[in-house]
Design a protein around this nucleic acid. Sequence first.
RNA 1: GCUCCUGUAGACGAAUUGGUUAAGUCACUGCUCUUUCACAGCAGAGGUUGCGGGUUCGAACCCCGUCGGGAGUACCA
Length: 514
Amino acid sequence: MTNIRVRFAPSPTGALHIGGVRTALYNYLLAKKMGGTFILRIEDTDQTRYVAGAEKYILDALQWCNISPDEGPGIGGAYGPYRQSERKDLYQKYAEKLLADGNAYYAFDTPEALDEKRAAMEAEKQVFRYDSSTRMEMVNSLTLSSEAVQKRLDSGEGYTIRLKVPREEQVQVHDLIRGTVTFQSNELDDKIMLKSDGMPTYHLANIVDDHLMEISHVIRGEEWLPSTAHHVLLYRYLGWENEMPKFAHLPLILKPSGKGKLSKRDGDKLGMPVFPIGWEAEKAEDSFRGFREYGFDPKAVLNFLAFLGWNPGTEQEIFSLEELAAAFSIDKIGKSGARFDYQKAQWFNQQYIIASEDQTLARSLRNDFGDQLAGVSDDFLASFCGLLKERVTFMTDFMEMGYYFFEPVKTYEEKPIRKKWKPEQRHNFDALTAALAAIDDFTAEHLETVIKNFIAAKELKFGEVFPMLRIALTGTMSGPDLFKMAALIGKATVLERLESGYNHFDQVKAAANS
RNA sequence: GCUCCUGUAGACGAAUUGGUUAAGUCACUGCUCUUUCACAGCAGAGGUUGCGGGUUCGAACCCCGUCGGGAGUACCA
C-alpha cells in the first residue's frame, strides 16, 4: 500500500460532538497502525454558521484525547493551508474546469425562488429536486442564451455553479465497510459546487482538498454515504478517478433509546456528557460540561469510543491507545448504528481508575483539587487513593465519597444508628476507645487485633460493633476497609470522632424515643 | 414521498464465511470473599438470530417477499 494519509475534517460550527471524536479516533488509529499521517482540515466554507472558538475547541479536544494531528492549522505541514477559507481561490479553478468541460453550469435561481418552488411542490405533495428532470425549467446557462448568461455574469448578479449530473447512469461507490453501493444518476440532484458568495460547498472543497492533500482513505460518518455518489462523479470529471481515495462510512452513534443519532439535547436531558470537553458560551444555558468535566479519563473515553462500532474480535476490552492502533482494522468496523451506552462508558472509566497507580491518581487529584488538599501529604493522598479507587467511578468521586479523610464528618446516616445503636452499651464503646488510645503503633494490623480481641473479651458480636465504629468515623455505611481507613486518619482523629460520633448516636436515639 | 444504509438477549457485539448445544462484555439476580460498600471470583436468568417463505443433509450466514430502525433529500457540513 502507498502512503497512508487520512484526514479529520470538521466544520467549526460549534463544539465537537463525541461522534466526531470517534471519527477522528478511527482516522488516527488507521494512520498510526499503518505508519501514515493524520491530518486535520477545518471546513469553514459556511461563514454564516461559523462559531468563534470552535476551531480552538476542536484542537483542545483532540489534544485532551491525545490524538493530535500530524498536519493541520497551527501545526503545519506540506499541504497547507489547512483551512478551506484560506484555499478559496483554489476551488474556483476547478469549478471553472467543470464548467469548461460541460460538467457544470451557471444557475441564477435565487434562494427565494427555489424556496417558492419547493413550497409549491410540497403543497401538491411532491418534492422538488434541482436535477436532470427539472433543470431545463430553471434559470441557468442551460436555458439562457450565452449572451443572456454573459450579461447576468457581467452585471454582478449572484450565481451558483451546479454539477450537471448525467441521466441514466449508474454510479458505484466502493465502501470498505459496506461493499459496493449503487446509485441511479437520475436520483441525484444537481448539487451546487460554488455558492453565490464564491465559496465552494462541502462537496467541491472536499474532493479538491482530498486530492491535493493526497488523502488515501476517507473515513467519515454514514451521513455522507448518499452524497458520495456525487463525489465519485466529481473525481471522474476532474480526472482523478484513478487516484480516488478509499471510502469507509462509519455507522452512526445513536441515542440511548436507539431512535435517532445522539445529539446535544440528549446530554442535557439525560445528564450525561456527549462532548469531549466543556464549552463556555456567552449564555450560561448554552454552556455544557464534557467527559473531562464529568471526571472521565481520556484514555477510558477513547477505549469506550473505539468499541462503539468496532471490536477487535477477541475478548480483550481494555486497550491502550497503542494497543488500539495495533489491533485496529477497517474490516472489523460494524455496519449498524451503535447506541451510546453511558453505563458502559462509566465501567471503562472505573477500570482505568482501578488500573492506575496510587501515585498517579494522587497527582491527578492534587491537580484538580489543590486548594482542598493544601495540607495533605503525598503519601497520605496516595494511600487514600489506594483505599478508594475500587469504589469510585469518576475522579470527582474521590473527594465526594472520601471527604471525611480530610475534614470532620458532615452528616451521619441515621438508619443504621437507629437500628443498631444501644445507648446502654455505650460503656463498652468507651472502653474500646480507651483501648485504642493505648495503642502506640497505630497501624491497621494493631487496630484489627485490639478491636477483635476486645470484641471477643466482651463477648460482643462483630455486627454490633463494626458498623458503629464505621459510622462514627465516616458517617456512612459504605467505604473502605475499616482498619486501614482508621490507621490512615490517625489516632488523634479517630479518638475524637469516636467520642463525638457516640454522642451524636445517643442524641439520635433520644430524639427517636421522645 | 423518493434514494441509500441497517436489523443476533435490555445494551455493545462474536460466530474459523453454509457445519455440533448461537461466544464474551455491560446492565440485572444469587452465592463466596465469615463488618458495610465496592473490587474480584463463581453461578443464574435472558434468544424461534425482526417476521414469512424458499434453496440445502444442514441457514444468523445464500435467494425472494415483508416489517421495523436510521441517514440523506439546503447557496449546512
